[in-house]
Simulated scan of single mutants.
Amino acid sequence: MRKIIYFMSMSVDGYIESPDKDIHWHHVDDELHHALNERLAAMGGFLHGRVVHELMAEFWPTADQDPANAGPTADFAVIWRDMPKYVYSRTLQRADWNTTVVHDVVAEEVMALKAQPGGDLALGGAGLAASFAALDLIDEYWIYVHPVLIGRGKPMFPSTDTMTDLRLAGTMAFGNGVVELRYERAEEPPAR
């Protein structure tokens, strides 16, 4: 069965964007972009909310047509266009670029999607991830910690009363100071 992987960049203090929705503090260089492309190209689909999808759809469909975007940026444009996308939105009625609109996060429907053949599913966006987490649907967390403190903004993880035990599955440090942390759900909770 395919896994759902919450795939996100955050600051050291746990934010995914500043209060004004700025993400220019992300340290994405060619080395990191190549690594992200490699991981995402192996996925079977992207799961996003409407806001994330609309931001992606503003840039990626034609990004590789601009010579200034050569290299990993152009490579990701092809990955993004070709990848099946599932956009969770109660207001969006249709979307282009190989996209299926889904109106609600329903556990049985997500499990049916996981049961389909293909690569794992990359989940993006804190709000959508919170909905998936509330239904216990996230299998792994791939967190890219950027070497910056932004002080306040949108947290990667919303407050919750649920504790989820995780097991470290791998790490990688990049030359620009970004650290990849990969966690999977623990089979059994550690003794407390």
Rank of each mutant, 00 (worst) to 15 (best):
72 P>M: 01
73 T>I: 14
73 T>C: 05
74 A>W: 03
74 A>I: 00
74 A>P: 02
75 D>A: 08
76 F>G: 00
76 F>L: 00
77 A>N: 01
79 I>H: 01
79 I>L: 03
79 I>V: 14
79 I>F: 00
80 W>R: 08
81 R>Y: 07
82 D>C: 07
83 M>C: 06
83 M>Q: 12
84 P>T: 13
84 P>M: 08
85 K>M: 08
85 K>Y: 04
86 Y>S: 09
86 Y>L: 13
86 Y>P: 10
88 Y>A: 05
88 Y>E: 06
88 Y>D: 08
88 Y>M: 03
90 R>Y: 10
90 R>N: 12
90 R>H: 15
91 T>Q: 06
91 T>A: 04
91 T>H: 10
92 L>G: 07
92 L>K: 06
92 L>H: 07
93 Q>D: 15
93 Q>Y: 11
94 R>L: 12
95 A>I: 06
95 A>W: 05
96 D>Y: 06
96 D>K: 08
96 D>S: 15
96 D>F: 09
97 W>C: 14
97 W>K: 05
97 W>N: 15
97 W>P: 06
98 N>H: 04
99 T>F: 02
100 T>N: 04
100 T>F: 03
100 T>Q: 10
101 V>I: 14
101 V>L: 02
101 V>Q: 03
102 V>N: 02
102 V>W: 03
102 V>F: 02
103 H>A: 04
103 H>F: 07
103 H>E: 12
104 D>E: 15
104 D>N: 13
104 D>S: 11
104 D>M: 09
104 D>R: 15
105 V>K: 05
105 V>P: 04
106 V>M: 08
106 V>A: 10
108 E>F: 05
108 E>A: 15
108 E>L: 09
108 E>D: 15
109 E>G: 13
110 V>K: 07
110 V>F: 09
111 M>E: 15
112 A>H: 07
113 L>Y: 10
113 L>W: 11
114 K>C: 05
115 A>C: 11
115 A>Q: 14
115 A>R: 12
116 Q>A: 12
117 P>N: 13
117 P>Y: 12
118 G>Q: 08
118 G>C: 11
118 G>K: 09
119 G>L: 06
119 G>F: 06
119 G>D: 09
120 D>R: 07
122 A>T: 00
124 G>V: 03
124 G>C: 07
125 G>A: 02
125 G>L: 02
125 G>V: 01
126 A>K: 01
126 A>L: 00
126 A>S: 07
128 L>E: 04
128 L>V: 04
128 L>G: 01
128 L>S: 00
128 L>T: 01
129 A>C: 05
129 A>K: 04
129 A>L: 08
130 A>C: 02
130 A>R: 08
130 A>G: 06
130 A>T: 10
130 A>H: 11
131 S>C: 11
131 S>H: 15
131 S>I: 06
131 S>N: 13
131 S>K: 14
132 F>G: 04
133 A>K: 11
135 L>A: 14
135 L>G: 11
135 L>P: 13
136 D>T: 13
136 D>W: 09
137 L>P: 13
137 L>I: 11
138 I>E: 14
139 D>G: 13
